[in-house]
């Protein structure tokens, strides 16, 4: 028995030396130290020895078992170390291979710009009012101080429908009248709204002109609203959209539904005013038309123009995007080519 124990011990140590993997470690463990392992079995046979030998044998057997367990631990640690080292050494990937493609969703650039514009105006107390696309001639023109045959009607080529006096709105301005009718409570309440929406013009589709485009119209009516407020408000908008140092220029202009009317330009953010293709080498980019609401329009909206005043403005998100991202062809917007959309 004694000899057998020593021979198991020697054999086990020799076997352990020959072990190189974690799997082999497990097998060795179970072969020698496991429940049915050789050491367990031989220990169980202690009882078969003469009584006087039992104590010594038992002591030695336990000692051998402990020695083997310690040796196993050492060996295990060594193997783990080797295996880790091998893994670290051999685990190299071609990190230049492309990653697994992930297809992102995304919003249309017009939506993104509309949101940005809406957020800025919302901060200044302007709420969104949606007005219809297909309109009465009266709302699109007449109530906005453009009676039939008014020369300003030439400024906006119109899509007519086969129904008399029903047209596609050429601007979001008819929404001004609708918002005043809905919100003014017979000309007794102030208004601050923006009206984003699609507008339509009868034009040839070219790189520079489209038959449909978004506009964001704004309207503020109150008892003490002045052109200085309009200037201050649009300047604030321009700074939030184009950056805090944006220089703003105001030009007299003409819209039948505002008076005085005003175009708003910002110093070209691409060239800093030196002149580049984006600003058509003028150094300025036109960002919106605006003005004080015409007394006739206030009246048509239900207000007394001797007491109430207001301002209105309108801008084109697609034009703003084109300038910001230097897009030369407005047709990109509704072509929905992913090669364009995926750049947003």
């Amino acid at each position: 028995m004694q000899e057998k124990l020593e021979s198991i011990y020697q054999k086990a140590l020799a076997d352990l030396e020959a072990i190189h993997t974690s799997e082999e470690v497990k097998a060795w463990d179970s072969r020698y130290l496991g429940r049915k392992g050789e050491m367990t079995l031989i220990l169980r046979q202690t009882g078969k020895l003469p009584p006087e030998e039992r104590a010594d044998f038992g002591k030695r057997a336990n000692e051998v078992k402990n020695l083997l367990a310690t040796a196993l631990e050492k060996r295990e640690a060594l193997i783990r170390e080797h295996e880790l080292a091998r893994s670290l050494e051999e685990g190299e990937l071609d990190v230049t291979l492309p990653g697994r493609p992930l297809t992102m969703g995304g919003l249309h650039p017009s939506t993104r710009m509309l949101r940005r514009i809406k957020e800025i105006w919302a901060d200044m107390g302007f709420q969104v009012y949606r007005s219809r696309d297909v309109e009465h001639d009266e709302y699109n023109f007449t109530l906005l101080n453009m009676p039939p045959h008014h020369p300003a009607r030439d400024m906006q080529d119109t899509f007519y429908t086969t129904q008399p006096n029903i047209i596609l709105r050429t601007h979001t301005s008819p929404g001004q009248i609708r918002a005043m009718h809905d919100y003014s409570e017979d000309g007794t309440r102030p208004i601050r709204v923006i009206l984003p929406g699609m507008c339509y013009r009868y034009e040839q589709i070219t790189a520079r002109s489209e038959i449909q485009f978004h506009q964001v119209e704004g309207l503020a009516v109150g008892k003490g609203i002045r052109m200085s407020d309009l200037k201050g408000t649009v300047a604030e908008f321009a700074r939030r959209l184009y950056g805090p140092d944006t220089e703003v220029r105001y030009r007299a202009s003409y819209f039948p539904f505002t008076e005085p009317s005003m175009e708003v330009d910002v110093k070209c953010h691409i060239c800093g005013g030196q002149g580049c293709p984006v600003c058509k080498r003028t150094g300025w980019i036109e960002i919106m038309g605006s003005g004080m609401v015409h007394p006739e329009v206030l009246r048509n909206g239900g207000y007394d123009p001797t007491e109430w005043s207001g301002f209105a403005f309108g801008m084109g998100p697609e034009r703003i995007i084109m300038n910001k991202n230097r897009i030369e062809d407005i047709r990109y917007f509704w072509a929905n080519d992913l090669r364009f959309l995926e750049q947003y």
């Binding site: 208004i191 052109m227 407020d229 408000t233 604030e236």
Partner: peptide, 13 residues
């Protein structure tokens, strides 16, 4: 013309 900020009261939101 000066640049000012509307002093007019905000309409109901």
């Amino acid at each position: 013309i000066p640049n000012t900020i509307m002093g007019d009261s905000l309409p109901p939101q």
